[in-house]
Structure formats: structure tokens, C-alpha cells
Amino acid sequence: MNESLVSKYEDIVTSRGLTYHYLSIPAVDDKPTLLFIHGFPSISYDWYHQINYFSERGFGVVAPDMLGYGGTSKPTDVSFFLHTAIVQDLLDILDAEKVQKAIAVGHDWGAPIISLLSMKHSDRFLGFAWVAVTYQTYGPFPPIDVILEMNIKEFGRPLLGYWKFFEQESAPQIIEKNLESLISVLYPDDPDSWLTLMNQPGEIQAFVENGKTTKRASYLIDEHHSRLLESLRKGGLTSALNWYRCMLGGVNSRIMEGATRYIPEENQFIKKPAFFAVAKKDHVCVYDYSVPLMKKYATGGLKMVEFQGGHWVHLEEPETFNRELEGWIRDTLQQS
């Protein structure tokens, strides 16, 4: 990230009493503001290619360290990770920055958050962009073993085997002792390594427990790598892993409309323009699942761009990603 932008970070205490640390760069003239929402195990610095690119072109940027990461609060109580509450945290930030109309961009766990922003606060946004991870609908969430069985039936293999490790009480301590091991798995030189280490239950746990490493991706440059390690060593993994536990523990079963029903399907369609950067070698959010879901729900218009790499398309192919995202934003503003 351009070092001159480091001073642009601010802190806010949201309406529910949590501190968020976030980058804020005001828009120039009538350019929109982009809200960048990262996932696991990231920090806002993960967006440095996009922060540099779009701020240099006059776009506003708001990029928070999400709950559990960086300079933001790290609650250990999983109930704090209710997605609708996190959505309100982000709206508090936008209100503090006097941003009335934004474009939300979400990667990994940022994807379900912008999905909820689309469902419940579409009037606050010009459009929504999903990066690698597809649109998230909300309803009953099955136990992880049931999900893995469903994966095998539909795709011939499990997809979320690593969730079995992340839900364990011992997972934060194991990872903190072998942090380099986890980072090498999550940012791999060969995205096909996820077919074993991420998809198959038990594999990532054994790998990390034994302190093994695989070749790190070149797109995770030394400065980014150092910042990521420093942040995770300082803050630990207990809070960050609550993003998984809030789903597996049924916390988000409280996301309902009315007293007794989940958000009805008719309220889950994306009514604003949508952008989807789909990764052909993301072996967790697989192409055959993610693309039909986006096509079904993106009724407000969809631009889909295919990338040949893995989960971290905004890091792996930043020039193409930034150009395609900017083009979609330009088209979206012209249509509106």
C-alpha cells in the first residue's frame, strides 16, 4: 500500500460498542465510494492493489479491518458475529464518513456480508461485487457433516473439510503455534493443493499440527506477508475463527424477517447491478456451484468475469481485476 495512505486510518466505536479500525479516503468530485470487505485470515491491507488503484483515480475508499482482525475489536463471544449486527457496524462507518451511496466489494467472508447488505440495505448502495466467493442466501444451516455429505453427492468430493478443524476449541492454539504453516496453505503457489488440504477433512489439521509448509504464492509479497503475520500473532485466531463458528453454531439462524421465518426467497434477489469475479481454480467455492447461484439471484444485472487462478484473484491478477471492476462501475453509473 502507498505509505501515504497509512495515515488515513481511523477508529470508530459502533452503535453496539465495538471498535473498528478502517481506512478512509474521501471521493473526488462525483466519484462513488468503494467499501472493501475482506475475509479470513485477512486484514484490510489485503486490498492494497485496489486501494492504490481506485484512490489514485478519485474514488472514495473505505476498507475496515473486519471484526476479529487487525486494529478492530476481537470478541471471543461468538454471538457478536451475527451477520446482521456486522452489517450495522459497516453502516455505522459509512454514516460516520457521510457516505450515502457506495459500492460494496466483498471477498471470502465479505461475500455473505455484502449479500445481506443487498437484501436489507440495497437503497444505500449503487451495486455489489463478489470476489471469488459467491452470493450467500440465508436459511437453516446444516451441521458440517451433513454439508460434507451433500458436497460429495453433488460434486463427488467434500469442499469444506477444513471447517472440521476450524470449529474445534483447540484450533486457535494449534494455528498460533504454526502460523506460517496455515498461511502457506491458504495462500498457496499451487491452488490445486486445496483439493487435498482444504477439501478433505483432517488434512489441514494434520498439516498444521506438524508444522509443515508448502510453497507460498508469489502474489503474497514479503511486505504483505509480514503485515499479515504481525497482525495475526498480535491478535490471535480465537476471535477470527468465530466467523466459522457463528455459522456452525447457528448464530445466524437469528437472521429472520418477522418472528418465526427466515428471509423469504423473494427478498433475497439482488436488485442492484452485480459483479462477480469467479475463480476457476477456487476449489472451495467451486465454479459449478457459484455461477448458477449468481445467475439465479442477480436480477438487477450481472457482469461475470472468469479468472483462471485460485481464491485470491484480486491479489493474483490485480491489473485485470481492477480494470474489469472499474469498467463495471463505469457502466453501472451510466445506467443509473
Rank of each mutant, 00 (worst) to 15 (best):
residue 130 W to R: 08
residue 52 N to H: 06
residue 294 M to V: 02
residue 39 G to A: 09
residue 288 D to R: 15
residue 279 A to I: 07
residue 228 L to D: 12
residue 213 T to L: 12
residue 256 M to V: 05
residue 162 Y to I: 09
residue 44 S to E: 01
residue 26 P to F: 05
residue 336 S to E: 13
residue 212 K to N: 15
residue 283 H to P: 14
residue 249 G to W: 05
residue 112 P to R: 13
residue 24 S to R: 02
residue 171 A to I: 12
residue 105 V to D: 00
residue 171 A to Y: 05
residue 116 L to S: 04
residue 300 G to L: 06
residue 33 T to D: 03
residue 123 D to K: 14
residue 205 Q to Y: 12
residue 151 N to W: 07
residue 257 E to Q: 09
residue 169 E to C: 07
residue 166 F to R: 05
residue 252 N to D: 07
residue 273 P to F: 12
residue 198 M to P: 06
residue 98 K to I: 03
residue 323 R to H: 09
residue 81 F to T: 00
residue 77 D to T: 00
residue 6 V to P: 00
residue 242 N to I: 06
residue 73 S to T: 02
residue 122 S to W: 11
residue 280 K to S: 15
residue 181 S to P: 10
residue 332 T to N: 11
residue 248 L to R: 08
residue 290 S to D: 10
residue 178 N to C: 12
residue 115 S to D: 07
residue 84 T to W: 00
residue 212 K to I: 00
residue 147 I to N: 06
residue 263 I to T: 06
residue 186 L to Y: 15
residue 318 P to V: 12
residue 132 A to M: 03
residue 165 F to G: 08
residue 132 A to R: 03
residue 4 S to I: 04
residue 168 Q to P: 06
residue 41 P to I: 09
residue 179 L to D: 04
residue 211 G to A: 10
residue 23 L to V: 02
residue 112 P to A: 04
residue 70 G to H: 03
residue 143 P to G: 07
residue 279 A to G: 13
residue 190 D to F: 05
residue 269 F to I: 14
residue 55 S to I: 05
residue 324 E to D: 01
residue 54 F to K: 09
residue 335 Q to V: 09
